[in-house]
């Protein structure tokens, strides 16, 4: 009997506590402003301590805050790493697909020479590299210099039998046509020195940071991406500044194409073509005497000689 009465009293106590609690909660829901005001008074010291914990630069709060921030950063980086791994897979797949399509179209890979960098801009003037391959290895002036497979960084400017010098695209005075992906415009690019090149784009073209810049004359000629924009509405042009993604100090090997990429002016090309044609069509006097003996063919050849 005694046990039952204890059990009943306990149940009654539970019902009483639950009833009072529900009543207080319902009262709070009916008059939320009243309970908020009361609670704000009651919680003043707790609120103060909580604010100290969240904002103070003291040792203990800052330790917990830093720990939390680092944990959040770790989570964020892990997330980015996962995304990056996925995009790497996508890149590999796209590269393979690109290679296959290029082979179908008959595009041959350019032959390249691998070279080690023997001097760089601490020993040499900035924007100049010395490599350990020269004319004996098939390198000629104007050959493009690559990092990795498709990132062009400069051209060969001086060749000796055993070594060569490459001038970077970022050298002051260097000028080339560049294609900006994304906005799909061809503009002129100029070296600014200090590892930076600049493209000039007319106002109104929606240039943005991260757009890839290609050198169409070099295949495959990705140079870098736009790292900074200078866009003043009072100027007729906007400027995009490009710097290679890889720093010079971290490069050890480069690959050098065997085909010269030096640009010639149209007049110079015309002159060279004319010289080649004249050379191929020039005869000595004996040949002319033979050909004049054969009727109608001579007339056309005489015209050409004239």
């Amino acid at each position: 009997m005694k046990v039952r009465s204890r059990h009943n009293s306990k149940q009654q106590r539970i019902f009483r506590v639950v009833g009072i609690s529900i009543a207080v909660i319902l009262f709070g829901m009916i008059m939320p402003r009243l309970i908020s005001t009361t609670v704000s008074v009651v919680m003043t010291p707790v609120h103060g301590i909580n604010q100290w914990f969240e904002n103070s630069s003291s040792l203990v709060p800052s330790f917990f805050r830093d720990r939390r921030a680092l944990q959040a950063q770790i989570n964020d980086l892990e997330h980015q790493l996962t995304l990056s791994e996925r995009s790497t897979l996508t890149q590999v797949r796209l590269a393979q697909e690109n290679d296959r399509l290029r082979k179908l179209l008959g595009a041959d890979e350019e032959e390249r020479v691998v070279a080690a960098i023997t001097a760089r801009p601490n020993e040499l003037p900035y924007d100049l590299l010395q490599i350990d391959r020269g004319a004996d290895h098939g390198i000629e002036i104007g050959a493009p210099v690559f990092i990795g497979k498709d990132m062009v960084i400069g051209l060969i400017v001086h060749v000796t039998p055993k070594y060569s010098f490459a001038e970077l695209i970022t050298t002051p005075g260097f000028s080339a046509s560049a294609f900006i992906a994304g906005v799909n415009v061809v503009v002129s690019m100029e070296g600014m020195g200090g590892g930076v090149a600049r493209v000039r784009v007319p106002q109104g073209v929606p240039l943005s940071v991260g757009d890839l810049v290609y050198l169409p004359s070099v295949e495959p000629g990705v140079f870098g991406s736009i790292a900074h924009l200078e866009n003043l509405p009072t100027q007729p042009e906007q400027y995009g500044y490009i710097s290679p993604d890889t720093s010079l100090s971290s490069i050890y090997w480069v690959s050098v194409g065997k085909q010269s990429q030096l640009a010639r002016s149209p007049a110079e090309i015309d002159e060279q073509v004319r010289a080649i044609v004249e050379q191929s069509l020039s005869f000595n006097s004996e040949e002319i005497s033979i050909t004049t003996a054969t009727g109608t063919a001579t007339s056309s050849e005489e015209v050409v000689v004239e």
Binding site: S21, I25, G28, M29, S36, S40, V42, M43, V46
Partner: peptide
């Protein structure tokens, strides 16, 4: 729980912390 619900203004919607605590 009632005080914390009041502190966070949950009485304007649903004081879920109080109900869970009960």
């Amino acid at each position: 729980a009632i005080v914390l619900d009041g502190y966070y203004g949950n009485y304007h919607t649903i004081p879920y912390l109080s109900f869970i605590t009960v």
